[in-house]
Design a binder for these strands. Structure first.
Length: 421
RNA sequence: GGAGAGGUGGCAGAGUGGUUGAAUGCGGCGGUCUCGAAAACCGUUGUGCGUUUGCGCGUACCGGGGGUUCGAAUCCCCCCCUCUCCGCCA
């Protein structure tokens, strides 16, 4: 959420950002309503003040055993008046809130302007796509061949966009999970295991609600939602808290399953593990001081990249353009891993700085040493990494002519084997 | 699911209609003392919003919402949550 004062004083800049993002949003009534809100507030607080003063008088008079009926009569109608104004005020405040909750974050000036992912800019590349002297298979073919991924039975159990991992496949999933958590823990992240069902408030705090409810699974007859990413419960760990400056920066890492409706992606990635309703991910979340957040974004991204380097998977890093970046983010790097089966780079991690956008929604603040006033922290998060897609990358990149798949060195202690097949 | 208890400041814990933003203790911060520290003593210590160049002032907040009243942490109604016991259960 943007600061209402900021929006009031920077309407043109906000409109410019909306344009860059390709978002249509009407400001009609916003400024007038905001003006009106403050006028009413002034009036109603004045009335309250009067009531408080007179009521105190009444108390003093009665204590002395004197008559206070004149004062009491004077205040008779004031309560009603306050109530009426309060109602009007609430209406305006609700309008402000509804509006602000649907305004996306401002963009960092380094974000390239563009309509869609074609305008994203590659800023780094690591490793070279391997040469194969045979036609590399898709991961689903490899999975089938070794009987480690079973899509048919998963469909029977749940439906499309679900998968059943078996044997070395299930083992690889678990190995990746543990390897990533260990990696991040060594990098200074605190491991947590949060609830994966969260309430509406938490979803609003990180920005999934109210705008993107159709992307989420909601549990029937309750107001619980299945998390689409660990970002939601982990960022909300400190919702409504005031942290001390010396607690920052705060790093967390969490493995969780993630659940997404994929409502708008019919026909995309219908085969394989790339786009699932349920997938596993290890996530990193940071809480930082405002002045540190962009340095921390670089470090966060580097940390995610390091996982790919240790696994020996070629990747490139792109900075998302204004039309492709998410609602809550100020700046985002996507890390894309090379997939020989598809012959292209695919997103495997998304690392974002949200600045104070989520912190304002969720009420995550901190106080500087010796300072009285509180400030919003900056929040960041990034995948480290999406586990299913990492499995895809390993199967496709390390497949051999004989059909076997070589397990990366760093995973072998976790896998208990050197190769699959 | 059944029965009961309870939700007050960072924590513990008073407060049942009139300067109570809230006693007291602990913790935190500042100071006195000390070579230094501990102890002791003194002082200080919530957040949001509005307003003001600033000091400040005003207002709201004692789980949430509504009601009674000149006035509510205190009375009434509804809701939520937590805890204990029983039942069930990984």
């Amino acid at each position: 959420m943007l600061d209402i004062k900021f929006v009031r004083e920077n309407v043109d800049a906000v409109k410019e950002t909306l344009k860059k993002r390709g978002v249509e949003l009407s400001f009609d009534g916003f400024l007038g309503s905001e003006q009106k809100r403050r006028e009413i507030l002034l009036e109603v607080e004045d009335l309250r003040n009067r009531r408080n003063v007179v009521s105190r008088e009444v108390g003093a008079l009665k204590k002395d055993g004197r008559d206070a009926s004149a004062q009491m009569d004077e205040m008779k109608g004031v309560g009603e008046k306050i109530k009426a104004l309060d109602e009007e005020l609430k209406l305006h405040e609700q309008q402000m809130q509804d509006f602000l909750l649907n305004v996306p974050n401002m963009l960092n000036e380094s974000v390239p302007v563009g309509a869609d992912e074609d305008a994203n800019i590659e800023i780094r590349k690591w490793g070279e796509p391997g040469e194969f002297d045979f036609k590399p298979l898709n991961h689903w073919d490899i999975g089938e061949r070794h009987d480690i991924i079973d899509f048919e039975r998963a469909t029977k159990i749940a439906g499309s966009r679900f998968s059943l991992l078996k044997g070395a496949g299930a083992r690889l999933e678990r190995a990746l999970m543990n390897f990533m958590l260990d990696h991040n823990t060594e990098a200074g992240y605190i491991e947590v295991f949060p609830p994966i069902l969260v309430n509406r408030e938490a979803m609003t705090g990180t920005g999934q609600l109210p705008k993107f409810e159709e992307d989420l699974f909601r549990v029937a007859d309750s107001d619980f939602f299945l998390i689409p990413t660990a970002e939601v419960p982990v960022t909300n760990i400190h919702a409504g808290e005031i942290l001390k400056e010396d607690q920052l920066p705060l790093y967390y890492t969490a493995y969780t399953p993630c659940f997404r409706r994929e409502a708008g992606s019919h026909g995309k990635d219908t085969r394989g593990l790339i786009r699932q309703h349920q997938f596993n991910k290890v996530e990193m979340v940071k809480f930082t001081r405002p002045e540190d957040s962009f340095d921390e974004l670089e470090k966060l991204t580097a940390n995610a990249e390091d996982i790919l380097q240790q696994l020996g998977l070629p990747y490139r890093t792109v900075v998302l353009c204004s039309g492709d970046i998410g609602f809550s983010a100020s700046k985002t790097y996507d890390i894309e891993v090379w997939l020989p089966g598809q012959g292209k780079y695919r997103e495997i991690s998304s690392c974002s700085n949200f600045e104070d956008f989520q912190a304002r929604r969720a009420g995550i603040r901190f106080k500087r040493e010796g300072q009285k006033k509180t400030e919003f922290v900056h929040t960041l998060n990034g995948s480290g990494l999406a586990i299913g897609r990492t499995m895809v990358a390993i199967l496709e990149n390390f497949q051999q002519a004989d059909g076997s798949v070589v397990i990366p060195e760093v995973l072998r202690p976790y896998m208990g084997m050197d190769q699959i097949g």
